[in-house]
Computed example of a mutant assay.
Amino acid sequence: MGGLFVAIGDSFTEGVGDWDTRHPNGVRGWADRVAKQLSKADPDTRYANLAIRSRRLAGVVEEQIEPALDLRPDLISFYAGGNDLLELRKDLGPVLETYTRAVERLVSTGAHVLLFTGFDIPLHPVLEPFKRRNWAFNDHVRQLARRHPDAVTLVDYWAWNAYRDRRMWDIDKLHMNRAGHRYMAIQILNILGVRHQLEFEPFGPSERVGPVQSVSRDVEWLRQWVLPMFGRRIRGVTLGDELRPKWPEPIRPADGMKKMYRKRRTPLAVD
């Protein structure tokens, strides 16, 4: 496929859940994996990733779209809006309008655009109201993809039953873990028609959890993840406030992404 692949968005695209300290921001993720396989197909492939966790749609649009387009990408992935869906007091109408304008801007450049639906995560009842917003968002994404059949490829994440297995998710239940990111990379490469070397080994039988253990896990999950998340929202802070994009300038994944990150971390010797 070659050319330049640029990924923009939030934690989904940054790679949160696929923890790996050998990569920038301590995460790898599906986009890095896709870029690596594209480089195996064509060593001249270049890649940039501007995504930062916790970014809302407006932040992605304002901070990432024009810098990404300045790089003149051939392929650009756009996933944003999930953090807005978690804000029940925010009217969904303006969010969908902003998303539409962003897609139209991306398509207007001639780059091929990857769009994503959001998965219908099996949520605890305390978060159930978010599902309806997710369904409305997904319908809107599908409509935009149908509007631009030649310029947009839809990754219909919502429809993939593999993600109904809790072993595809990190402990926070909102982000894919390493297995989830790997599976996502495989599916995207297959959709794009790119030959690759990634494989996914099916899980064995799932562990059966009794009602007492299930309740205990839910209580711990609420304490460790849900309450801190809403606390940060109340304070107006996010986990991405101090982070920079993983790969703000195009790199050649064929040169070794872990090796490039080691070089970036190593301070220059001073006489």
Rank of each mutant, 00 (worst) to 15 (best):
G26T: 06
Y157W: 12
E220Y: 10
F203R: 11
L144I: 10
K90C: 06
A7S: 14
L71K: 14
G2T: 08
V60C: 11
A48Q: 05
D156E: 06
H175Q: 04
R223S: 05
D84M: 07
Y47N: 07
D271P: 15
V95N: 08
S77P: 03
M260R: 13
E249Q: 14
A41R: 13
M257D: 03
G17K: 02
V194A: 13
A51V: 12
H23D: 06
P67G: 12
D44T: 14
D44E: 14
K258E: 14
E199V: 08
Q187I: 02
R33L: 15
T21P: 07
L268Q: 15
R146W: 03
V226K: 01
V27P: 10
L4I: 01
K36R: 10
Y99E: 12
R132M: 08
A159C: 01
K259H: 13
R166N: 01
P228E: 02
D20K: 03
D271Q: 11
R56T: 12
L86P: 05
P125G: 09
L86N: 13
V27C: 14
F130N: 03
P211F: 06
W158F: 05
Y183P: 02
R252M: 04
S39A: 15
V152D: 04
L227N: 03
D271V: 10
Y163G: 02
A80T: 06
D74Q: 13
P129I: 07
D91L: 08
R105S: 12
N83Y: 03
F78C: 08
R182V: 02
I52R: 02
R147H: 04
V34P: 06
L75S: 02
M229C: 02
G231Y: 07
V113K: 13
N134V: 14
A159Q: 11
K173E: 08
R232V: 08
R132A: 15
T45N: 09
G231L: 04
G118N: 13
A185E: 01
T153R: 08
V226Q: 04
A80Q: 02
